[in-house]
């Protein structure tokens, strides 16, 4: 069974003359336990696919299946939110400025109907490498990396199977990026997670993912193994040019 199935997915914004086709006929499958990457430049539609899966981009056609169940429209049921969670790009924008870490996690746990919230909050913080002393801080009292850890803890609160990662480290310093990527690697192993990760950074995707799709102007131009990336055996001209631009000279 596949964790995520994307079949002939089209996503668009606006209507008639203002219509912008953000994603055109995208098709890929992510196996359970796999880590799959979406690479492309800004405007290539890679993040839009994540937003369509989560219902944040309501206008789409084609097929999206999550663990064998087909999704419809923009409405998602409780079961979906327990299966799929998302980590956003900018940790400075993804936490409510007036809520403490404790409030963020407690509310999430409450929404997922969890019991024993107090102990769970502490365990979540421990899981993402934050100590108890971070529990009652406001976002402005945290660094970018710490915020992203809180965002990851929030995504893990409902014990999902699939994590959608939307450029989770692009707003962070490289040393912090390494910490967060390591954390994501460990969490994937510990919680048997499936990742769908979006990034413009080929080395990051190469590091994190088993397979990846290269996107350009809303279309997937090539799906390949990460090893193809390393051995420089990308077939499509665009993938090669992206690769050439990212490899250290």
């Amino acid at each position: 069974m596949t964790a995520l199935g994307i079949d002939n997915l089209n996503v668009w914004f606006g209507t008639d003359r203002d219509r912008v086709d953000a994603v055109k006929a995208a098709r890929f499958d992510v196996a359970i336990g796999e880590s799959f990457g979406l690479v492309g430049e800004s405007g290539s539609g890679k993040s839009t696919i994540l937003r369509a899966i989560t219902g944040l981009a309501p206008t789409w056609s084609g097929g999206i299946t999550v663990e064998g169940k087909a999704l419809q429209g923009a409405k998602r049921d409780r079961e979906f939110y327990k299966t799929v969670q998302m980590v956003f790009q900018d940790p400075y924008a993804s936490l409510h400025p007036r809520h403490t870490v404790d409030q963020v996690l407690s509310e999430t746990l409450h929404l997922h109907g969890m019991a024993d919230i107090d102990a769970r909050v502490e365990r979540l913080l421990h899981d993402v490498g934050l100590g108890k002393r971070f529990r009652f801080r406001y976002p402005h009292q945290l660094s970018g990396g710490q915020r992203q850890r809180v965002a990851i803890a929030r995504a893990l609160a409902g014990e999902p199977d699939i994590l959608l990662l939307d450029e989770p480290t692009s707003a962070l310093d490289v040393s912090v990026q390494a910490e967060i990527l390591n954390l994501l690697t460990d969490l994937r192993e510990e919680h048997k997670l499936t990742y769908l990760m979006v990034s413009h950074d080929l080395p990051v995707i190469g590091h994190m993912c088993d397979r990846l799709a290269v996107m350009k102007d809303g279309e997937i131009v090539e799906i390949m193994q990460s090893d193809d990336l390393r051995n420089n055996t990308a077939k499509h001209a665009y993938s090669q040019s992206l690769l050439a631009a990212s490899v250290v000279g």
Binding site: L56, Q85, F88, S94, P97, L111
Partner: peptide
């Protein structure tokens, strides 16, 4: 349209909350 509202919507929070 901010990310933190998207995030809480993805936890299944309703409009009232």
């Amino acid at each position: 349209s901010s990310d933190y509202i998207s995030a809480i919507r993805l936890q299944g929070a309703g409009a009232l909350r």
